[in-house]
Every structure is written in C-alpha cells, then in structure tokens.
Amino acid sequence: MSKTVAFELRLYVAGQTAKSIAACANLQRICETHLAGQYRIEIIDLIKNPKLAAGDQILAVPTLVRRLPKPITKIIGDLSDEERVLVGLDVRPI
C-alpha cells in the first residue's frame, strides 16, 4: 500500500435528494470496504456550484467520477449495485 492516494473520486449530487444521500452512503461503504485508506472523496453539490457541471460533463445525477487513476470514468446512478461500481472503478475486490 502506497501512501499516495490511488483513487481520487468525485461525487456530483444535486441537493439532498434521496438518491444523493443513497449514493453518498453507498460510496462511503464501498470505499471503506475495498479501498480503505487509498481514496479521497469530494462531494460536489451542483445546486451550489452549477458551473462545475460543465467541467466533468455531468448530465446525470448522481455521478461518480474517478479522476485518478486515469482514465477518467464515470458511474451514474445511486451506486446501489456494488459489483458494478467496483467494475466501473476498476477495483478488484480484495
């Protein structure tokens, strides 16, 4: 385990909707389970910062963007399907 953060994740949400909250919770859980200590999560509320939506080409909410490692991938939805989130983040279960 390197000390540098391997996974830099950004979660775009829009306000405190049920889906946003679910997505946050799911993300926290998955990361803790599989990527403990290697990740950093940034949560962006588009309602507060609408300009940021253009930067990562966000259409759907919630969207999880994996900024590191490259390439950038996006996962949309409330992240309820753990398998697919892991596939999307390219993380093999340990």
Binding site: Y12, K19, I58, V61, P62, D78, S80, R84, V87
Partner: peptide, 27 residues
C-alpha cells in the same frame, strides 16, 4: 454549451436522473 457523452466512460448503477443537465441548462 457542448455536452459530451462518452458511452465507454459511463457505468450505470442504480437509479439516477438528469438533474445535472438541468442544472447546467439552468445555469
């Protein structure tokens, strides 16, 4: 405003909506 969608970059997991698009448009 150019909205770029790349299918290969996107994974779908569970429920979502297009609020992001709305917000961009609204902005």
């Amino acid at each position: 405003d150019h909205v770029h969608i790349e299918r290969s970059e996107i994974e779908e997991t569970g429920e979502y909506d297009l609020e992001g698009l709305f917000i961009r448009l609204d902005h």
